[in-house]
């Protein structure tokens, strides 16, 4: 499959401080790629480099087959959408007026405003001024603005950080729908459940370095101890490992009808991150 983004040995230095150290990855067309890491790990810096807001100090970065530095050229700007902490809104304008401005800047028909409002479930609030909105609602307006021109590539920097679970779920459904239509999504998040729900592949970024990169399932298999917990009727919990000894023990409990519950000890992405980096998200 075609690579939309190719990053090879990316380095970024701010003075003597290395923000990114030989970061390499590629993202295929139609993929949802999760870039996971704590604050200050280099996620936003990477997005800024890929969108020509920052010039890297080493390595190669290409987006749509062109150097990332070309992404601020007029014809390239419509090819991607970006949502980040720096995506501001006009406070004295209504939601609709904010979207209207961007529909005109991208030369879009007015109907796209309706679609964008429906995407973030804000049709009823369209006339509300932005300065009357909650942080979560503002985040949804920014997201609506980001996807309005239906770009083939989306950069989403913590898109659901300010959202409640219901609205986050609404956004997940929308992002899946966009992805089904062919949109490639580069997603940064702290939320490991979100990454697991949405991403085809994830990369763990820690102190400017990629520590792991794979599908969530492959990572779970790799870091699993292949055990599960058996809860017996008397309330006792036993960890059973894959193998003959575990099978015999389990068979005994099952024959005696003593098993109350069984569940997998498969690690979550958060567990794996902690295991790899030794630090929490």
């Amino acid at each position: 499959m075609t690579a939309i983004i190719e990053v090879q040995n990316l380095q970024m230095k701010y003075g003597k401080e290395e923000a990114l150290k030989n970061v390499s990855f590629s993202i295929r067309k139609g993929e949802i790629f999760g870039f996971l890491g704590p604050s200050g790990s280099g996620k936003t810096t990477t997005i800024k480099i890929m969108t020509a807001q920052l010039t890297h100090t080493g390595g190669q970065v290409s987006v749509f087959g062109q150097p990332a530095s070309e992404m601020n050229k007029g014809h390239n700007k419509s090819k991607f959408g970006i949502l980040s902490d720096n995506s501001g809104l006009y406070q004295r304008l209504s939601i609709e007026e904010n979207l209207l401005l961007y529909s005109q800047l991208y030369n879009l028909p007015k109907s796209t405003i309706e679609e964008a409002l429906a995407f973030v479930n804000l049709q009823k609030d369209r006339k509300k001024k932005v300065n009357q909105l909650s942080k979560g609602m503002m985040q949804r307006v920014v997201l609506a603005r980001t996807i309005m021109h239906k770009p083939p590539l989306l950069f989403l920097d913590e898109p659901t950080s300010a959202l409640d679970p219901v609205n986050a779920q609404h956004i997940y459904n929308g992002l899946r729908k966009l992805n089904e239509l062919g949109t490639t999504i580069f997603l940064t998040t702290h939320n490991m459940e979100e990454a697991e729900l949405l991403c085809n592949r994830v990369a763990f970024l820690h102190k400017g370095e990629i520590r792991e990169i794979d599908t969530p399932l492959a990572l779970k298999k790799k870091y699993s101890d292949h055990s599960f917990t058996v809860e017996l009727e008397n309330g006792e919990n036993h960890v059973v490992y894959n193998g003959e000894q575990g099978a015999v023990q389990l068979m005994e409990w099952m024959k005696a009808k003593r098993v109350s519950r069984m569940y997998s000890n498969e690690p979550t992405l958060g567990d794996i991150f902690v295991q790899i980096t030794g630090s929490d998200l």
């Binding site: 969108t51 601020n72 007029g74 700007k77 419509s78 501001g88 809104l89 961007y102 800047l105 991208y106």
Partner: peptide, 9 residues
């Protein structure tokens, strides 16, 4: 909001 304008076409 200025960066938003700059990132637009």
């Amino acid at each position: 909001t200025l960066r938003g304008l700059m990132m637009s076409p």
